[in-house]
C-alpha cells in the first residue's frame, strides 16, 4: 500500500532529515563509488543503481517539477 503521503511531503521530510543529520548525500554516493571502483571490474548494475540513488538524492535540492515528467 502506497500510503497517503504525497511525494512532495516525502521529499520535504527526507530533505529535512538529511539537513538535521548534517549529512551530505553526494559524499555518501562518492564513498560507494570508490568502494565499487576498488573492485577490478565494477558490475554495471551496481553502478546503475548507485547512479539512480545519486540522481534521486540530488533531485531533493531541485523544485519537484524539474525532475518529474
Amino acid at each position: 500500500m502506497m500510503g497517503n503521503k504525497k511525494l512532495a511531503q516525502i521529499r520535504d521530510e527526507l530533505a529535512q532529515e538529511i539537513e538535521r543529520a548534517g549529512l551530505e548525500p553526494a559524499e555518501w554516493c562518492q564513498r560507494q563509488l570508490q568502494r565499487l571502483e576498488a573492485k577490478t571490474r565494477p558490475d554495471p548494475a551496481d553502478l546503475e543503481s548507485l547512479r539512480l540513488i545519486r540522481d534521486a538524492l540530488a533531485s531533493l535540492r531541485e523544485p519537484l517539477h524539474v525532475g518529474a515528467e
Binding site: M2, L7, R11, L14, D55, A56, L57, S59, A68, E69
Partner: peptide
C-alpha cells in the same frame, strides 16, 4: 521513466528512515 525510478527510491529511503 527516470523520474518514477527516482521517486520510488526516495520513498523507499524515506520508509527505511
Amino acid at each position: 521513466r527516470p523520474a518514477d525510478r527516482e521517486n520510488l527510491v526516495l520513498k523507499a529511503i524515506h520508509d527505511a528512515v
